[in-house]
Design a protein around this nucleic acid. Structure first.
Length: 358
DNA sequence: TAGGCGTGGGC
DNA sequence: TGCCCAAGCCT
């Protein structure tokens, strides 16, 4: 017990002198901490920082979040990725308001029931906001513990997940779990980094297993590599005489659920204009219409997701008459759209294709 | 349970 | 360039 207290005290001592000044570290409001934790899942601080400030601004309380339409939440989340986080955030806000009278749950077990909240996030909120001594185990903690103690159990195996949780729980400082948890994560993020950790200035460098055995680069161990799927996307980008286009919402499972995009034709491989206009989706939209088609990008634009590479062609389709179910080009910003589409829109707005309609 | 789910930065 | 990684969770 003495040893573990020493470990935590050294950690906290380092943290108090080296921690970054971050907005979510100035509050213990569970709603705010919850927002920050969801935003920061699999996301760097620098990337999530502005999103956090905008969410606090636009949805100051859980009631504001619960009472907004999902589309507004997704719109604010746009560009951050892993959009199920935003959908679950909104779902859980409604649950808190409707089932819990707007009172944020105050124990690990109750917090864990929120959709989108797993072991890590429940531990973080319970410790930071309610002083419950439940240890957080995120990527930083896996790395720090596996290196310092020399644990080579794969961190993404069932066995490893259990093992590291038990160790982290053993090490936690019961008199100050909030600071301990934030300290061990900050330590992994800033000192025991994945590449080029700062071992020479590390407070644990005299007793670190990985440093002593020269195994910094081998730890932590992660098993399996994901297989990248290749897909070919063809977007039909309509321009009508009155500056309208068509966008659809993605429904069902898969990527970008509930976000919007141009009409999509997916193909097994790269296709040309002949194959495009023979496709049913194209016919349903434009058969018997006067169309002028032009491929916007001669090289397929490759958009890389964590599990898929999207080889994308944007087809400009101009017609000479208005049709139904269109959206004004100037109102696209009201819809949540994936980065790939957003990038394209910003690009085309700078071309003569767009300016001829202005 | 293993696979699916975004985006951006670092080397 | 290609690969790894980032305050994970859901099904």
């Amino acid at each position: 017990m003495h040893q573990t207290t020493t470990f935590s005290n050294a950690l906290i001592h380092w943290y108090l002198r080296n921690k970054r000044d971050l907005p979510w570290r100035k509050t213990t409001n569970p709603y705010h901490i919850w927002l920050s934790e969801i935003i920061l899942q699999q996301t760097r601080v620098e990337q999530g920082y502005d999103y956090y400030l905008r969410f606090i601004m636009q949805f100051p309380t859980v009631f504001d979040l619960a009472n907004s339409p999902e589309q507004e939440v997704l719109n604010l989340w746009q560009g951050l990725g892993y959009y199920s986080r935003a959908r679950n955030l909104h779902f859980s806000a409604k649950y808190i308001v409707e089932e819990l009278n707007g009172v944020f749950p105050s124990t690990y077990d109750e917090i864990l029931k929120l959709k989108g909240v797993g072991d890590y996030t429940a531990s973080a909120i319970a410790s930071i906001c309610f002083n419950e001594p439940t240890a957080v185990v995120d990527g930083n903690v896996y790395r720090g513990l596996s290196r310092y103690f020399g644990i080579s159990t794969p961190i993404n195996s069932t066995k490893g997940i259990k093992e590291f949780k038990i160790l982290a729980q053993f090490l936690i400082n019961h008199s100050n779990p909030a600071t301990h948890n934030q300290a061990i994560m900050e330590f992994g993020a800033r000192m025991c980094k994945p590449q080029n950790p700062l071992c020479t200035e590390c407070p644990f460098n005299e007793s670190c297993f990985a440093l002593a055995k020269n195994k910094i680069k081998e730890l932590p161990v992660k098993e399996k590599k994901i297989k990248i799927k290749k897909r070919h996307f063809n977007y039909l980008v309509l321009f009508t005489p009155k500056n309208k286009t068509i966008i659809n919402q993605r429904i069902g499972k898969g990527i970008w659920q509930n976000l919007y995009e141009f009409p999509l034709i997916e193909s097994k491989k790269k296709i040309d204009e002949i194959e495009l206009i023979e496709h049913n989706t194209f016919k349903e939209l434009f058969e018997n219409k006067n169309t002028i088609i032009r491929l916007f990008n001669t090289e397929e634009k490759v958009h890389k997701l964590s599990h898929q590479h999207l080889y994308t062609q944007f087809w400009i389709v101009k017609i000479d008459a208005e049709i139904s179910n269109t959206t004004d080009w100037n109102k696209l910003e009201e819809f949540p759209i994936p980065r790939l589409i957003d990038n394209f829109i910003n690009e085309i707005k700078q071309t003569e294709i767009f300016s001829t309609f202005e």
